[in-house]
Amino acid sequence: MGDFFQLNDLVMQFGGLTAVKDFSIELQAGELVGLIGPNGAGKTTVFNMITGFLTPTSGQVRWQGEEITGFPVHKVTAQGIARTFQNIRLFTDLTVLENVMISFHQRIRTFFWEAMLGFPTYRREEKRIRESAMAFLQELGLAHLAKEKAGGLAYGQQRRLEIARALATRPKLLLLDEPAAGMNPQETNELAVLVRELRDKYALTIFLIEHDMKFVMGLCERIKVLDYGITIAEGTPAEIQSNQAVIKAYLGEPK
């Protein structure tokens, strides 16, 4: 068994509601895996358990051979797992560039008093952060918007900025929660190309949630399907498309 990333029998209960039940998956480095399912199936809850926003009722999150279940969110990020949010969560009153620069803060080497006293050590680091952040914006075609307030961007651009920001934390595993939501077909196509490029360029492993079936089927190598918190299918896009349980979950029982 590879020990890149594993979820073992994750369970999440909210009072009487079991949002996720016995969810297990293993990801190999470099894979591009999809997680689909109807609304309220528990997909985002899985992401929240991985990133530390929720502590699973039971089960384990294992990363690089170590258990990280229940780690504080910022420590999970420091371990190399980054995410985007389904309901975009940018720092709206800060500039596009600042949004990305924040992701570099976790690795800062100078101390706050060096910043307060205007030490050259701090100024050099600030310059380096600024330049690296610009490079990520370039990568995602947002460089020309660097000085704009993030809240003023068009919807598709905000989704891209979310990805740029996550990428700037230098993850090994990137979790994308409905990255194509609200995009038009052309933007969605561009996004699929971009996701594959980023995976190759940064040697990423990508785990993504998406409702756009064309996007998921075209992009993912492997797909897992959740319904009412229970895994009802997994396999290649072709297998999932012809799976009776999946069709039933999406279309309901044939009358």
Partner: peptide
């Protein structure tokens, strides 16, 4: 601006 997003970007509030 958004404490949840800040944490996800590695900031310890």
């Amino acid at each position: 601006e958004d404490e949840i997003a800040a944490r996800a970007m590695g900031i310890d509030p």
